[in-house]
Design a binder for these strands. Structure first.
Lengths: 340, 340
DNA sequence: CTGAAAGCGCTAACAT
DNA sequence: ATGTTAGCGCTTTCAG
């Protein structure tokens, strides 16, 4: 069963295919009656425009490549949800690729996108990625790129992210205002900018409130529940004095809560805890975990909007790359002694 | 900056573009030396094959449409993660569309996919969808469709799902074996097959163990934490005797736990609770919630594999539509008095 | 081993 | 108001 084309419609109606094409595109110089006839025949024959052909001719595919580390993490799937929604409203489709946190897959994804002639790429960097030639080359070749969350200034493209520095500052400040004097920060040894920014915010907040920055209170490890548990155990084993914990993300914060409970250290009385990311479980655990929300869906929507705005301006890279920095939202729950 | 084409490569090398095409496709009748020359020039000129053109000519796009209700629910994003992984390994790309649980969006998504000449569609039905003409028509027109999880036999296409009946049976049986005699089931009034199947499994398990099916112990409402809370309150207010709760999904189960704790009813001593879906929070709440795992990533992978197998067979609809039914996995935690 | 030529289905400038 | 024509960049048969 072959697909019907404008030629089929033309033949049925005894007109030329170019008249059909114009009728379907609502060309002003086509008689209303033939437009109607053409459309009826199109429906009758189950006609579907072949976008491959029209894209080939027009040079516009209406497709945007979305390249993310994985969809199996709620942060990314939520952002992609936002991107797709806005793109869809604007008549664009999404070609999806997961980098699996690998540099090589990222390169493959870009290759695939270019071959498919996407009109641009929206992406968030893989953890493994530490050189950025593949993205810089896209920019040099004039291909629209927008990065969200995991970005790098070196690349020089528009980006949308939250203010991780501010988030780190807010989380720490909150603990200070709750009365904490010796606040631990658990971070990661991975070379990822956003985590460094949260650490920077932590330090700045301490300085601002005249509290010492004590390296013995800063831990580095791999994102996991276990990391949080180990840090608490280590603090206790070494008789380190502490009354607040700011974990760089919620899973680590969860580990912190678990171990504190196990050791019968009361939360939030003896120790106050805050995480980062506002994962789905945080509101439902005991005690509910205070955290910092990253506005994931909005991040996706804003990414799509900025991308489309620049695309439609016709000069995507003409000016200094625009940045949208979203405000992190402090979510106060019982673990930090808030209004729970 | 125009894209380079095979004509550009040909001109540089003083050969014809058709030789270039053959060289790039590793055609056997092309001299090794010219293949090398062509490839070097291709790299030098930053050549990217234009898939639009080759798809138009060959009739194969290597693109599969994935149409899901939303990515903002971990179940779906996790399945899509599995689909993309397998498709990617097999050289296919994913065009993504969210139906937002709406029938009309589902129709639009299909329309978009057809225009983009996808080689098939993998989808899960929107809650709103109760007539299936749009999918049946795809089948009639020979377009490969595979449904996962939210399917309908009436459509008659291959599908991948878990055995919800069995999951409902297992959950109920588990509570019975834990000693429960009066087990409540909370379900939904939405007309969704998988939820009805869980209910059917619940009833069968009771019958099998010679326990009465009591309509006063079956509740219907809208998927939410509140639903679980309300049901418990109602049971207590009406002095209904019960010692086990099987919630049709985890959020409702969470509400159940919350309200039981509020009313100082001990879990699992007085009442044992189990949910369904194995949401991320279940393992981390107090007490940890027993549940039934749906093997989401595997569901995506199996969907992609079955789809590709049928596609490659060259006769997608030749036989009775194949069904893959995955086994639900019982996850026993403290809320049902299991090995916690 | 390489070249010539037709055509996939459409757009759009240019005729008529 | 409609028709003619020339491609978009590629695959693929057939000729040389």
């Amino acid at each position: 069963m072959k697909k019907t084309t404008i030629h089929d419609i033309a033949r049925e109606l005894n007109i030329t295919f170019s008249t059909v094409a114009k009728a379907l595109n609502d060309h002003p110089r086509i008689k209303a009656s033939t437009k109607i006839a053409v459309r009826e025949m199109a429906v009758k024959l189950n006609y579907q425009q072949n976008k491959l052909a029209s894209s080939l001719k027009s040079g516009k595919t209406g497709i945007v490549g979305v390249l993310v580390p994985t969809l199996d993490v709620s942060f990314f799937s939520s952002v992609v949800h936002g991107i797709e929604s806005v793109m869809n409203e604007n008549g664009y489709s999404i070609l999806l690729y997961q980098s699996k946190e690998l540099h090589a897959h990222e390169v493959s994804g870009i290759e695939t996108f270019l071959q498919s002639r996407v009109e641009g790429i929206i992406s968030s960097l893989a953890l493994e990625t530490s050189t950025f030639d593949h993205f810089k080359e896209l920019k040099e070749r004039g291909i629209p790129v927008l990065l969200f969350d995991r970005t790098d200034d070196e690349i020089g493209v528009p980006c949308v992210r939250i203010d991780d520095y501010r988030g780190g500052y807010m989380a720490t400040e909150h603990l200070i205002k709750q009365g904490c004097k010796r606040i631990v920060h658990i971070s990661t040894d991975q070379n990822v900018k956003i985590f460094k920014e949260r650490l920077r915010g932590y330090k700045e907040a301490l300085l601002h409130y005249n509290l010492p920055v004590d390296d013995k209170l800063i831990f580095y490890g791999n994102l996991s529940i276990e990391l949080g548990m180990q840090c608490i155990q280590q603090l206790v084993d070494n008789n380190v004095d502490f009354d607040g914990i700011f974990a760089f993300e919620d899973y680590t914060g969860l580990g912190v809560l678990k171990q504190l409970k196990k050791l019968n250290i009361t939360i939030p009385n003896q120790v106050k805890v805050i995480g980062f990311a506002n994962e789905a479980f945080g509101a439902h655990i005991t005690p509910p975990l205070s955290t910092v929300d990253q506005q994931t869906v909005k991040m996706g929507e804003e990414s799509a909007r900025l991308f489309l705005k620049l695309l439609k301006s016709g000069e995507y890279y003409s000016t200094t790359p625009e940045q949208i920095v979203l405000d992190p939202l402090l979510i106060i729950r019982e673990s930090s002694g808030g209004v729970g």
